[in-house]
């Protein structure tokens, strides 16, 4: 399958390569200074929720200054971000779906995972709350009420961290939302889905950061709070950061990726994340700097030594 695809694309590629001969020549000189970090480019794939909130610009600017490097940030869904890394097209990944991260580690593509920060998910919807889910702190029954009231639910539908969490909640509620007509799979980023919910009416599951950063543009209210405002732990939204394994993809800038992880999980990164606010509200809570050891962050969540 893989080989076949390559062969087809090889034909495609050579056709285009002819046209590009002039452009690629300029790239030749960049491989020489392998010993130096300075001047290198780090490719980070991440989720739309970290990018759209503006946090990454605040984190990357001091990192770039300190190491004299460039961080290329590509905002995708968690699924796409990990897939890009699996293909060796990214050096480091920052995502928020532990189950998908664990798969990434178990398949050998990722090494040195760290817990970075967290915020939480919230159930948002129209201010008048047609399904009457407001006020409760049980998100599973809130989802069941949305389904029972046949209210519209807009899903990310893009295999992102938020989408993964949403499916987890439907599972807990014992419901198959895909079979309902009021369930819309947007296949798009968090911001797009919030805009769509705002325009078309209904409910959606959003990460608090993106919701807060877009509050000025949309007219949606929180109906079920996450753990930051004493909601259920099921709505916790932890972000992890993983370097791509250089043994699998030898082209990745692994040392730079580790420098980046070190910077973000160190005191300076902690302060930037802690101090980042939008309209007076803190969006992310750093958890990398901790006195108590947390060994589980380095390995898949249910990993045991005897199994490994």
């Amino acid at each position: 399958m893989q080989i076949q695809r390559r062969r087809v694309l090889a034909g495609l590629g050579t056709g285009v390569a002819v046209g590009l001969a002039g452009c690629t020549g300029a790239l030749g000189g960049e491989d020489d200074d392998a010993a130096e970090i300075s001047g290198e480019t780090l490719t980070l794939t991440t989720t739309t929720s970290t990018y759209d909130t503006g946090l990454l610009d605040e984190l990357n600017a001091p990192f770039q200054d300190r190491y004299g490097v460039t961080v290329d940030t590509v905002a995708q869904g968690t699924g796409a971000a990990l897939e890009t890394a699996r293909n060796g097209d990214a050096d480091v990944v920052m995502v928020h779906a532990r189950s998908l991260e664990d798969e990434f580690l178990e398949d050998g593509y990722g090494v040195n995972r760290r817990d970075l920060m967290f915020n939480d998910f919230v159930v948002v919807g129209e201010p008048d709350d047609p399904a009457g889910v407001g006020g409760g702190d049980d998100v599973v029954s809130a989802f069941a009420e949305i389904a029972a009231a046949e209210a519209t639910f807009v899903s990310r539908g893009d295999d992102s961290g938020t989408h993964t969490k949403e499916r987890e909640i439907w599972d807990e509620a014992g419901l198959e939302p895909e079979e309902r007509g009021e369930y819309q799979e947007a296949g798009d980023g968090m911001g797009e889905v919030l805009v769509r919910t705002d325009q078309g009416g209904g409910y959606t599951l959003a990460d608090r950061g993106t919701y807060l950063s877009m509050q000025g543009e949309i007219d949606l209210e929180i109906h079920v709070q996450g753990p930051i405002e004493d909601g259920p732990d099921l709505l916790a939204n932890p972000y992890g950061i993983v370097a791509v394994n250089p043994a699998v993809h030898d082209n990745v800038t692994y040392d730079l990726a580790m420098a980046y992880i070190g910077f973000l999980t160190g005191l300076e990164g902690h302060d930037v994340i802690q101090g980042y606010t939008v309209e007076g509200e803190q969006l992310f809570f750093p958890e990398a700097v901790a006195e108590d050891p947390n060994f589980q962050q380095y390995v898949p969540a249910d990993w045991k030594p005897e199994e490994g």
Partner: peptide
Amino acid sequence: LFTVSNQGPLGSFDLVFTTEAMIM
């Protein structure tokens, strides 16, 4: 993307996420 990706036939040129790939 498949062509210029690290796994693809032009993978060694490091063209993913560059203007050259966009031109292609």
